[in-house]
Amino acid sequence: MATELEECFHYFGYGNHLSNIHLHNKNALKVGIGKLVGYELHFGDFPASSSAKNCWKGGLASIQEKPGSVVWGVIWKMNQTDLEKLDRQVMGYRAKDVTVEKVDGGLISCRVYQLSEYIPAAPSTKYKRLMVDGAVENSLPNDYISKLVAIEDNGQTGAVDATLVDSEETKKTVTNGDGVHTSKAIHQSEGYFLYFAYGSNINSKRFSVSCPTSQKVAVGCLKEFCLEFAIKEQTSGEKFVGATIESRLNASTWGVVWRVDLTELPKLDRQEHIKEKFYEPVDVSVDLENGESVICRTYRVLQPYSPFPPSVLYKSVIVIGAEEHALPAAYIETLRSLPEGPEHTVGPMKSYYLEATKN
Results as ranks from 00 to 15, higher is better:
residue 20 N to T: 11
residue 67 P to I: 09
residue 341 G to L: 00
residue 92 G to V: 11
residue 309 P to L: 01
residue 212 P to F: 11
residue 317 V to W: 01
residue 132 V to T: 12
residue 212 P to E: 12
residue 25 N to A: 05
residue 317 V to S: 04
residue 232 K to C: 03
residue 266 P to Q: 03
residue 238 E to L: 05
residue 144 Y to P: 06
residue 232 K to P: 01
residue 30 K to C: 12
residue 198 Y to S: 06
residue 187 H to V: 14
residue 313 L to D: 02
residue 178 D to W: 11
residue 192 Y to A: 01
residue 166 D to L: 12
residue 261 D to V: 01
residue 6 E to G: 06
residue 245 I to E: 08
residue 227 L to V: 08
residue 247 S to F: 09
residue 353 Y to N: 04
residue 20 N to S: 13
residue 219 V to A: 13
residue 159 A to N: 07
residue 305 Y to L: 03
residue 325 H to E: 03
residue 316 S to R: 12
residue 242 G to C: 08
residue 355 E to Q: 15
residue 35 K to T: 02
residue 84 E to Y: 05
residue 293 S to G: 00
residue 211 C to S: 01
residue 287 D to Y: 02
residue 110 C to S: 05
residue 152 E to S: 14
residue 23 L to D: 13
residue 103 V to D: 05
residue 114 Q to M: 10
residue 228 E to Y: 00
residue 241 V to Y: 03
residue 55 C to T: 03
residue 320 I to H: 09
residue 331 Y to M: 01
residue 209 V to S: 07
residue 307 P to S: 03
residue 211 C to V: 02
residue 196 F to M: 07
residue 32 G to D: 05
residue 82 D to N: 11
residue 98 V to S: 05
residue 94 R to E: 15
residue 335 L to D: 02
residue 135 A to C: 11
residue 201 N to I: 09
residue 52 A to Y: 07
residue 316 S to H: 04
residue 87 D to S: 06
residue 219 V to E: 12
residue 298 T to S: 10
residue 194 L to V: 08
